[in-house]
Design a protein around this nucleic acid. Structure first.
Length: 422
RNA sequence: GCCCCCAUCGACUAGCGGCCCAGGUCGCCACCCUUUCAAGGUGGUAGCGCGGGUUCGAAUCCCGCUGGGGGCACCA
C-alpha cells in the first residue's frame, strides 16, 4: 500500500511554525516513501476563518518547497457526505439525536489502543470518551467527525500530526470503526517549545514562515533546521540539503520529546546555507530579498556587493545594516576631514581594490601606523561604522569620487552612486 | 480535578544492556589567522532529574516520585 499523508490546517492566519514542522515531517515521509502529500483546509468553523489564510498557507509551503499532490481540498465541501454518514449511524443505532444534534455512542468500558508511529503503544480509557457530537444542531459536522471521514475518503494511510491531537485519536478511531472504515496509522509529533519551555508563541520571537522570510532566512536553512527538531539522521550529521533529507528521513528516527526552538542555531545554519550558495545564486537571492523588503537600490551594485558580504552575514536581513553605506552616504556625527588619506588615494588609477590596498598600506607605513590603526578611522569615515565588508573592496565599489568625498575632499555634493534607501 | 504524553550538556541530539568515567552540532570561553566583522583552524566548558528494582553489568529494561507538556466544547 502506498503512502498517502496530509496536512490539514484550519484557515486562521499565517501557518505557525509548529504546523509547518509537522507538515515538513509529513512531506519528508511522503517523498521518501514515494507517496502522496495532500493539502486539505479544515474550514468547518466558518466563524474563525480568515479569508487570506488559505493563500498564506499555500505561500508558506511553496516558499519552503513543500509541494503537495492534487488540488487543495476543503472540509466544508464534504458537509453533505458527513451528514449522510451521520444519518447512517443513526439508522444503525450507533448514534442518537440530542437536542437537534447527533451524537455517537462511545463504549464506556475497556480501552482504545493504537500503536503510535512515534510513541509506541498508547492506551486510552474508554470511560473518558464522551458521546461526542458528530453533527451540530445547525447541521454542520464537527471537527472530530469530519476529519476522520475525510481521512477515510482521501485514502490517508498515515495521520502524522501534533501531539495536541493525542486525545482526539481514540475518538476518531471509534468513529471510524462505527463507520466501518479502515483505520490509518497514527503518529504524534512533539510540540515545539520556546526557550522558557512553553509552547512556542509570539512572545518568543518569529513564529511564522513569513516572518523568518522577512528577516532574511532562506528555505534551505529553515527546512534543515526544522527537520532536526525531533529527528536526526545519525550522531554527526547536521547540515543537509532538501534532497538529502528526503533520502534519509524515516519515522523510526523521529523522537517523542518536545524540542526547544533555538534561534541562534537557526541563524548559524542559515549562514551555512547562505555561504554554500554559488555566487550568482547568492546575488539573485539577495536582490530578490531586498526588492521584497522594498529597497530600490541599484541592482548592479547589489550584485557587485554580494560577494563582499556572503562570507560575513548570516541572514539576508543584515545586508542593509552591513552594506547600506554603498547606497547612501552614512550620517556622520562629526564632519570628516582626512586630507592625508585623500592625498594617498587621489593618484590611485585604476581605482581597484588591489591598488587601493597598496596605496593605503603605503600610507600606513609612511605614518608608522599598524594596519588596524590606519584603516579603522577610514572605515568609520567611509562606512559610518566600525564594522563593514573589506575596506579596499568597499572603496572600489564606492568609486574614487565618492570615496574622496567621504574622507573630506570635495564633500557637499549629492549622495552615493545609488539612490537612497526605501 | 481527571486523562494522556514526555524526561541525556544552557539548546538540538547520538545512544535502542557491556564499544559510554557518554559522541556530534549550536551557544559560550581561550588561542591562532586577520584591515573591522565574519568565516576558518585548534583547544576547552558543560549532561544521563530523584529513588527503588531486574541483571554479572543500566543512560539504556520495570515501578514509583518529581518536573515539564498536551487534552478534557454543538473550536479546530
Amino acid at each position: 500500500m502506498s503512502v498517502v499523508v496530509r496536512m490539514a490546517p484550519s484557515p486562521t492566519g499565517f501557518p505557525h511554525i509548529g504546523l509547518v514542522h509537522t507538515a515538513l515531517f509529513n512531506w519528508l515521509f511522503a517523498r521518501h516513501e514515494g507517496g502522496e502529500f495532500r493539502l486539505r483546509i479544515e474550514n468547518t468553523d466558518t466563524s474563525r476563518e480568515v479569508e487570506e489564510a488559505t493563500q498564506q498557507i499555500q505561500d508558506s509551503l511553496s516558499w519552503l518547497g513543500l509541494d503537495w499532490d492534487g488540488d487543495v481540498t476543503f472540509q466544508l465541501d464534504r458537509m453533505e457526505r458527513c451528514k449522510e454518514e451521520a444519518h447512517r449511524l443513526l439508522e444503525e443505532g450507533k448514534a442518537y439525536e440530542d437536542e437537534g444534534a447527533i451524537r455517537v455512542r462511545m463504549p464506556d468500558e475497556g480501552v482504545t489502543v493504537w500503536d503510535d508511529l512515534i510513541r509506541g503503544r498508547i492506551e486510552y480509557p474508554n470511560e473518558k470518551l464522551e458521546d461526542l457530537v458528530l453533527v451540530r444542531g445547525d447541521g454542520r459536522p464537527t471537527y472530530n467527525f469530519a476529519s476522520p471521514i475525510e481521512d477515510w475518503l482521501d485514502g490517508i494511510t498515515h495521520v502524522l500530526r501534533g501531539e495536541d491531537h493525542i486525545s482526539n485519536t481514540p475518538k476518531q478511531i471509534r468513529i471510524l470503526e462505527a463507520l466501518g472504515a479502515p483505520l490509518p496509522a497514527y503518529g504524534h509529533v512533539a510540540n515545539i517549545l520556546g526557550a522558557d519551555g512553553k509552547k512556542l508563541s509570539k512572545r518568543h520571537g518569529a513564529t511564522s514562515v513569513e516572518e523568518f522570510r522577512a528577516q532574511g532566512y532562506i528555505p534551505e536553512a529553515l527546512v534543515n533546521f526544522l527537520a532536526l527538531l525531533g529527528w536526526s539522521y545519525d550522531d554527526k550529521t547536521t547540515v543537509m540539503s532538501r534532497d538529502e533529507l528526503v533520502e534519509r528521513f524515516t519515522l523510526e528516527r523521529v523522537g517523542a520529546s518536545p524540542a526547544v526552538f533555538d534561534f541562534a542555531k537557526l541563524e548559524w545554519l542559515n549562514g551555512v546555507h547562505l555561504r554554500a550558495l554559488p555566487p550568482d545564486e547568492y546575488a539573485d537571492r539577495l536582490v530578490a530579498y531586498l526588492r521584497e523588503q522594498g529597497y530600490e537600490w541599484d541592482e548592479e551594485l547589489i550584485r557587485r556587493a554580494a560577494p563582499l558580504v556572503q562570507e560575513k552575514i548570516a541572514t539576508l536581513g543584515e545586508f542593509p545594516q552591513f552594506a547600506g553605506f554603498l547606497f547612501a552616504r552614512p550620517a556622520q556625527a562629526e564632519p570628516v576631514d582626512m586630507p592625508e588619506v585623500a592625498e594617498a588615494l587621489e593618484p590611485v588609477e585604476p581605482f581597484t581594490s588591489e591598488r587601493i590596498e597598496a596605496a593605503l598600506r603605503g600610507f600606513a607605513e609612511q605614518h608608522g601606523l599598524k594596519p588596524r590603526e590606519a584603516f579603522q578611522p577610514i572605515r568609520l569615515a567611509v562606512t559610518g561604522s566600525k564594522i563593514s565588508p573589506g575596506l579596499f573592496e568597499s572603496l572600489e565599489l564606492l568609486g574614487k569620487e565618492e570615496t574622496l568625498a567621504r574622507v573630506g575632499r570635495g564633500s557637499g555634493r549629492g549622495g552615493a552612486s545609488g539612490s537612497s534607501a526605501r
